[in-house]
Design a protein around this nucleic acid. Structure first.
Length: 666
DNA sequence: CTAGGGTTAG
C-alpha cells in the first residue's frame, strides 16, 4: 500500500475531522499510521503545503496525462505512486481532473485508506463542490462498502447532478433494494434536476429486478416525455425490462418501433424469445438480423441463439449456426464454446460435443457439467461418472448444484446406486431437483422400499417432481399398485394438471373400468383443462416435418403408413408382439390409437423413405416414447440396418442392431 | 485530459 504524503497537519484534520464526522468511526486505528508514515515520506514535505505549490496548468496537464495512461493500463499502484511523486516534486498542483482518476485507482485496487486521504486532499484543495470530484468520491465510498459515507457525501454536496443521483440509485440496486432506487429516481425528477439517459436506464433496470410491469410502464411514459425513449441505452433497458416482467408483447412493440437497433437490442429480444420457449421466433429473428446486415452478431448473440437450437434439437440449424460462428470471426470465449457443446449434446451429436470438449484448453464448471450430463442423456452413464471423477482429480473447479445433478443423473443412468448416494451426501444444501434425482436413481434400480423411506425421511412427498421420479420407476418396473397410489397423490398435489388425470384414466382403462374412465374424462373437460398432445418431428431439407398421433395430413402420408405396415409385418414375422399394458402410459390419445399411428413411428417412417440408405434417422418427440414404439424401433433398426436416434422427454434413444442405448429404462 | 449505463452458456 502506498501512503500519500500529507504535508500539512491541517490536511489530517480534514480527513479525521471530528467525532461527528462519519469518517471518524473507523479512523482511530489508522491515524497513528498516517503520522508515522508521513514522517517517512520525507523531511522536505513537512514544510510544504498545497498552497505553496505553484499553479501551473501546463505541468498539471502533463501529470494528468501520465496518470491517465497508467489508469488505462489498469496499473493502479502506478497511478497512486505517480500522484505521490507529483506531490513530492511540488511543481504542479493536483486539479479537479487529477483527483477523480486517483480516486478511481483507489477503489479499483480496493484501497479505502488512500481513498480517505484523497478525500482530505479534495477538501483542502477546494474541490468539495466540483461535480467530478464529488461523484468520484461517492463512487469510491460506494464501491468500498462505505455506503453510509457515500450517502453522506451526496447529501452534503451543494449541487446534485444526474451522475450522483444515479450512483446512489446503483448503491441501492447493489443492496438488492430496487424499490429505493426507483424512489431515488422519482426524487430526482421531482427535484427538477435534469435527468439523463443513464439515470433513466438505471431506474428501468430496477424495475426489471422488481418485475413490476406497472412501474416499468410509468418509467416508459417518463422516457417518452423527456424524449429519451429511443436513446439506445434507454430503449434497450426498456426492452429488457418488458422481457423480465414477462411481457414479450411490449418488448416486441418497442423493438418494432426502434429507429435504430444495435447488437444488444437484437440479442436481448432473441434471448427473450428463448426464455419464453419461442424457439422458432428466435431463429427467425436471428436470420432477419443477418439478412438486414446492419448489425453483426457477437458472442452473446450466438450464446443466446444456440440454446434455441439445443432445445428444439434442430441439429441442422445448430450446425449451420456453428459454421457461421466459425466464419464470423467472433471470439470463441468459454460461454460460446459451452453453448455450442450443449447444442450438439441436445441435438444428438454427443461425439461432436465430446471432440470440442477434449480440444478446449480452458474448461469451467459449465463445460464439465454439459459433458457429464451429455453422456448420461445418451445412455453412457459410466462415462459421465468417470468424467466427474476426472474433474475432481484434475481441476480445482468449484462443483455446484447443477454439476451434482448431472453426476446423479449419470449414476441413475448407469444404475450406480452406491456412488449416487455418496454424491448426494456431498451436496451441501440439496434442492428439490437433487432429491428427485435421488428418488429416480433408487426407483430405477427397483429399490422402491428404500425410495419410499428416503422420501419420508427427507420430507419431500409434497413435491410433484419427486413423485414423478418415483412414477417413472413404477413404469419401468411395472409396479401397478404403487404406481396408482403415486398418481393419486399427484392428482391431489396438482389438481389443475390434466396430465395426472390422463394417467389415472389410463390406469382404469387398463383394468377395463370404463365408468371411471368416462368420469375422469368428464372432469377434465368440465375443468377446462387441456391434456398434452403428443407429436414428433424430423428435419428434412431444411424444413421441420411435424407429426401428431394418427396424423394423415402429411402429403406423403400414404407412403409413410405403407412403409410402416410393411416394417411392422416384418418384425412380427420375427416374433415381435405388442404389449397390451398401457396402465401407466401418460398420453391418452396414444393409448387409444393403434400403435402404427404413433407420431414417433410416422416420423421414423418418413425418415426412412426420404433419406439415403444407411443414413442415421434423427427424430424428436415432445413426450415420452411409448413402450411398444420403443421395442419396435429396436427391431426396425436391425431390420433396415440403420441407426435411429430418437430424442424424447428424458433422454436420447440410440436404436442400433436391435438394441437401445437407454437399456430399457427411460 | 476527467464521472454513472444495456445483451450471454449448464
Amino acid at each position: 500500500m502506498y501512503v500519500l504524503p500529507c504535508a500539512h497537519a491541517q490536511i489530517q484534520r480534514y480527513i479525521f475531522i471530528s467525532d461527528k464526522h462519519p469518517l471518524s468511526t473507523t479512523q482511530s486505528k489508522h491515524s497513528r499510521n498516517v503520522r508515522i508514515n508521513t514522517k517517512l515520506a520525507g523531511e522536505s514535505l513537512d514544510r510544504r503545503v498545497f498552497d505553496e505549490i505553484p499553479v501551473s496548468d501546463k505541468h498539471t496537464f502533463a501529470w494528468n496525462n501520465l496518470i491517465q495512461t497508467h489508469l488505462a493500463n489498469e496499473d493502479f499502484d502506478l497511478v497512486i505512486s505517480t500522484y505521490r511523486n507529483m506531490l513530492l516534486r511540488g511543481t504542479a498542483r493536483p486539479d479537479r481532473r487529477t483527483l477523480p482518476r486517483i480516486l478511481t485507482a483507489s477503489w479499483r485496487s480496493g484501497d479505502i485508506f488512500t481513498g480517505k486521504q484523497l478525500h482530505g486532499h479534495a477538501l483542502k484543495l477546494g474541490f468539495s463542490s466540483d461535480h467530478y470530484v464529488v461523484t468520484a468520491l461517492i463512487e469510491m465510498y460506494g464501491r468500498l462498502d462505505s455506503v453510509d459515507i457515500a450517502k453522506w457525501v451526496f447529501e452534503k454536496s451543494p449541487h446534485r447532478n444526474p451522475v450522483s443521483w444515479t450512483l446512489l440509485a446503483r448503491l441501492y440496486i447493489k443492496q438488492n433494494k430496487p424499490g429505493l432506487a426507483i424512489d431515488m429516481f422519482k426524487q430526482m425528477v421531482d427535484s427538477g434536476d435534469e435527468i439523463d439517459s443513464v439515470a433513466l436506464a438505471t431506474a428501468v433496470g430496477a424495475c426489471s429486478m422488481l418485475k413490476s410491469l406497472q412501474q416499468g410502464r410509468k418509467l416508459h411514459r417518463i422516457a417518452m416525455k423527456y424524449g429519451l425513449e429511443f436513446d439506445a441505452l434507454v430503449s434497450n433497458t426498456l426492452l429488457k425490462m418488458y422481457i423480465d416482467c414477462g411481457s414479450i408483447k411490449d418488448a416486441r412493440a418497442i423493438f418494432d418501433r426502434m429507429p435504430s437497433k444495435d447488437v444488444i437490442t437484437w440479442t436481448a429480444l432473441i434471448n427473450g424469445y428463448v426464455k419464453k420457449g419461442g424457439f422458432n421466433e428466435c431463429l427467425k429473428l436471428f436470420r432477419q438480423m443477418n439478412m438486414d446486415g446492419l448489425v453483426k452478431p457477437d458472442s452473446l448473440t450466438f450464446s443466446s441463439v444456440l440454446p434455441a437450437c439445443a432445445r428444439m434439437a434442430a441439429h441442422k440449424h445448430g450446425k449451420e449456426i456453428h459454421g457461421y460462428l466459425l466464419r464470423s470471426g467472433v471470439k470463441l470465449n468459454l460461454t460460446v464454446q459451452n453453448a455450442v457443446m450443449d447444442m450438439y449434446v441436445k441435438s444428438g451429436f454427443i461425439e461432436y460435443a465430446s471432440r470440442i470438449f477434449t480440444r478446449m484448453k480452458d474448461k469451467d464448471v459449465v463445460s464439465w457439467t454439459v459433458m457429464i450430463m451429455g453422456y448420461s442423456l445418451h445412455g453412457q452413464g459410466e462415462q459421465g461418472v468417470h468424467l466427474f471423477c476426472t474433474m475432481e482429480r484434475k481441476s480445482s473447479i468449484h462443483i455446484d448444484q447443477l454439476t451434482y445433478a448431472a453426476v446423479l443423473h449419470a449414476c441413475s443412468t448407469a444404475r450406480m446406486v452406491e456412488q449416487g448416494k455418496f454424491y448426494f451426501h456431498c451436496i451441501k444444501a440439496p434442492k428439490v431437483a437433487n432429491y428427485s434425482l435421488m428418488v429416480g436413481l433408487l426407483a430405477r434400480a427397483g429399490l422402491f422400499e428404500e425410495a419410499k423411506i428416503f422420501i419420508e425421511e427427507q420430507k419431500v412427498e409434497r413435491h410433484a417432481e419427486v413423485l414423478k421420479a418415483l412414477l417413472d420407476g413404477c413404469r419401468n418396473h411395472q409396479q401397478l399398485v404403487l404406481g396408482k397410489r403415486v398418481i393419486e397423490q399427484l392428482c391431489d398435489l396438482e389438481p389443475l394438471n390434466a396430465d395426472n388425470y390422463v394417467l389415472l384414466s389410463n390406469w382404469y382403462a387398463n383394468s377395463e373400468r370404463w365408468a371411471m374412465v368416462h368420469k375422469l374424462r368428464q372432469t377434465v373437460t368440465d375443468m377446462g383443462l387441456n391434456p398434452k398432445k403428443a407429436y414428433s418431428w424430423i428435419e428434412f431439407r431444411n424444413k421441420v416435418h411435424v407429426f401428431g398421433t394418427g396424423d394423415v395430413s402429411h402429403p406423403r402420408s400414404e407412403r409413410i403408413y405403407g412403409e410402416l405396415q410393411c416394417l411392422v409385418k416384418k418384425i412380427q414375422d420375427e416374433g415381435y408382439r405388442p404389449n397390451p399394458d398401457f396402465s401407466l402410459h401418460d398420453v391418452e390419445e396414444e393409448r387409444e390409437c393403434i400403435q402404427i399411428g404413433h407420431s414417433e413411428m410416422l416420423a421414423i417412417s418418413f425418415g426412412l423413405i426420404t433419406t439415403q440408405p444407411s443414413a442415421t434417422i434423427r427424430v424428436t418427440k415432445n413426450l415420452r416414447v411409448c413402450r411398444n414404439c420403443h421395442d419396435s424401433a429396436k427391431l426396425i433398426s436391425k431390420t433396415v440396418g440403420r441407426e435411429i436416434i430418437l430424442k424424447d422427454l428424458n433422454c436420447f434413444h440410440h436404436f442400433k442392431d436391435g438394441f437401445c442405448s437407454c437399456g430399457g429404462s427411460w
